[in-house]
Write a protein that binds this DNA or RNA. Structure first.
Lengths: 208, 208
DNA sequence: GAGGCTAATGACAGCGTCTGACAATTGACA
DNA sequence: TGTCAATTGTCAGACGCTGTCATTAGCCTC
């Protein structure tokens, strides 16, 4: 079992995250200060920075949990699967099991609201996109290993992952701005968009 | 002809940009302060912020010039061209005429060095990626108009642009880290990567 | 070409993020 | 229980950025 010290740390860590997300989703990211977050948990500002490298990191922490799950899912996909299909299956798995990961810390509802905050806050969106690139890099390595090619010499792993990432970004954005803001809607949109990539690149858009 | 006031403003604007890029590429982005930039041009810190919204904007200003050119090139492509081909031609045009745009303010050499600074500085890379998304949005509208489809209802314009953007990002990254850091190398790599997108998505990587 | 008008600048004060340093507190473990 | 190490609070300060107001400098009219 864990030591008392570790449990205490985990508790303040979670409390800080909860307080931060709560404030971000109500008052907005820019208009909540680190002092307010620290005060809400009754710790010093300095302590906040010991748990999170900055406001940004706290704002993206939930996303990070979901993403870690997704990358793990890709790693565990059967080696026989084609690269794009492995990514597709893993991301769908991710959406289906999102609840388990998030609910351990905050209600899923808060996660969804936080999503929109990220999308509508320039500095957060920027940080989110940069993080996406790091993930794409990791995924390219996984795919390259699966297929037995050199990720630094052969551009195909990175290209495939970049295309997939691009499609997912389009999906994310439409999800955040369109009407149906549910996990099911996200699932359906993911499938639909992945099916239309091919046609969008090659076919004539007007003949429809 | 321009008034004296306008010429003076343009001169300080350029001087600030030159000083900023000069310092960023030698001392590094994080380790140069706004005060240092302002001092180098002999203006107050407050004046710097009147010309550039922040350090970030000054760091990305050169990129911004090149990108504006590229978007304009896409707009002027013949309407008969297929979407992806229009993007391809425009970006190649962009690389070929880069010198004209940049040399008006700083030597092209500085632009190339600044490129690597952006790529290796987390906050700058993040801002760069977010800006890319804004550009992709604009491009999607252009393509949609060309093809006569609704950009909000039909996902294909955004998907096509996202794929193109993803490929360009992979190219940028390899360009910055690989050996040959010249505009010609960038040109060749762009062509090669665009040719390999299709195969990377559909074909079996091992049968080669 | 003198004077009034307006735009540009400088100087100053202040807020918020983030870091380093040191002292005080609190849990771990013999 | 007493020692050691980890965690926290406090303080000082750097840096980015903004609002405010007085000062300067170009512009335009009479």
């Amino acid at each position: 079992m864990e030591t008392l010290r570790e449990r205490k740390k985990q508790r303040t860590r979670d409390a800080l995250l909860r307080a931060a997300v709560e404030l971000f989703t109500t008052r907005g990211y820019e208009r909540t200060t680190v002092d307010e977050i620290a005060d809400a948990v009754d710790v010093s500002q300095r302590t906040f920075f010991r748990y999170y490298a900055g406001k940004e990191e706290a704002a993206l922490a939930l996303q990070e949990m979901a993403v870690a799950r997704f990358v793990e899912a890709v790693r565990e996909r059967p080696a026989a699967e084609a690269p794009m299909e492995a990514l597709r299956q893993a991301v769908l798995e991710g959406w289906d099991t999102l609840g388990e990961v998030i609910e351990a810390v905050v209600p899923i509802e808060l996660y969804l609201r936080m999503y929109r905050v990220i999308e509508s806050t320039p500095v957060l969106l920027a940080a989110h996109l940069r993080r996406n690139e790091e993930i794409e890099d990791a995924l390219a390595r996984v795919l390259a290993a699966r297929e037995g090619v050199d990720v630094d010499a052969d551009p195909r792993p990175r290209l495939a992952v970049a295309v997939f990432g691009g499609v997912m970004r389009v999906t994310e954005r439409r999800w955040g701005t369109d009407g149906d803001f549910s996990l099911d809607a996200m699932r359906d949109m993911t499938i639909a968009h992945l099916e239309q990539v091919g046609p969008a690149l090659t076919k004539n858009w007007r003949s429809q």
